[in-house]
Amino acid sequence: MEGLDRMDAKVTDKLGKAGLWLSALFIILTLLAVLGYILIRGIGVMSLGFVFEMPRNNWREGGIFPAIIGSLIVVGIALLFSTPIGVGAAVYLTEFTREGRSTKAIRIAADSLNAVPSIVFGLFGLALFVFYLKDFTGGPSLLSAGLTLGFMILPTIIRTSEVSMRTIPFGEKMESYGLGATKLQTIWNIVLPGAIPGIVTGIILGLGRAIGETAPIIFMVSLNPIIPKSILGSGNTLTTQLYFLAMEGISMDVAFGTALTLILIILTLNYSARRLNRYLSRNLKR
């Protein structure tokens, strides 16, 4: 009897392990399959011209330069908008308020915002930036799109910054006060440098999300390739162009080329942000 039980346990253990191993394998294979498929389908159109030229002849020739520029501008605006506000809010939450109802409310608000579907942000951005603040944003412009994405990633930046600010030891802050530093000096010299890794992580997460979203900005960007003249003007982005190319069946090759470009940009930005992070933490903690 006992021997049988032991056998059973061994078999169950083996089966369990095999199951876990299989699901891990499945995830990795799926990821490789998606990336590989996009690579194979997209690599054919890749060239310097594809990256740096305007499309011609209804996408049959030339490249996707306007969408690359548009995406970078929109994401840049989103980060320029949400990073200072998000970090500021995190400083406020950790250093200027007591734990209580108001901090709880802000935290719940941030978490709920994170769960709002992105198309809803799009609608909100349409109402606020495109219609209500038209004189300031230029209506359906790259600025409106960037600000909408900025709102969308704000909760991520607030929460990751806050979490990393909370890890700064109380003792370090006390010693700074003990040396006669003011609250702002302590925040500037001790809290923010120590929180940089967390802030950069938040920026990376937000950036990845912002550059990959189509829904929130579909109302604000042009579906046609335009080199943006200013941020108050019209432009298109990689995601909206991808949507357009695939929906209208214009060119699947260019669509996959666009997807590949998008993935390469995300990987590059992630990699640079991580390098920057390492550089900053090394230089601040010399």
Binding site: E172, M174, G178, L179, P193
Partner: peptide, 20 residues
């Protein structure tokens, strides 16, 4: 601030800042 400059304090557990 001026007071804390005049009256310095050392703690039980030293907390050097994570700098040079």
């Amino acid at each position: 601030v001026a007071l804390r400059k005049k009256v310095g304090m050392l703690f039980q557990k030293p907390n050097p800042f994570p700098m040079s």
